[in-house]
């Protein structure tokens, strides 16, 4: 049973790496600024999922706090960037 879970963990890490690569491609190529912000937001989310998977594979509950912090920071930074695109300044 442990083997099955190991294979699944490796598979999901590989898939999440590919997903981060897709976000990276859009982040570099994206023609408009909003494409880049969207790609960055998705990259944060996928990184958060990756850390959750790492937490399962190392068997440590500590990774949960890192994932929660990453989700928090990602949300705030996306909001700031979107506000900047909308108005040209973050705090009016």
């Amino acid at each position: 049973m442990s083997l099955l879970l190991t294979v699944a963990l490796y598979f999901s890490q590989f898939c999440l790496l590919l997903a981060m690569l897709c976000c990276g491609i859009r982040l570099i190529r994206g023609p408009a600024a909003q494409d880049r912000v969207l790609a960055l937001d998705t990259l944060w989310m996928v990184a958060m999922l990756f850390i959750l998977v790492l937490g399962i594979s190392f068997g440590s509950v500590l990774y949960f706090e890192i994932a929660l912090l990453i989700a928090l920071i990602g949300f705030v930074s996306t909001l700031a960037l979107a506000k900047f695109l909308l108005r040209g300044e973050v705090i009016e």
Binding site: M1, Y10, S12, C22, V46, V53, G59
Partner: peptide, 30 residues
């Protein structure tokens, strides 16, 4: 990967399915 020695099947199988479904869906979304 450092997993615990003995994982009962009733945990391993659903966790495997959830991991695979979640990673495939995430990949499709990106």
């Amino acid at each position: 990967i450092e997993l615990a020695e003995s994982i009962p099947a009733w945990i391993a199988v659903p966790v495997t399915l959830l991991l695979i479904a979640g990673s495939l869906i995430t990949l499709i979304g990106t």
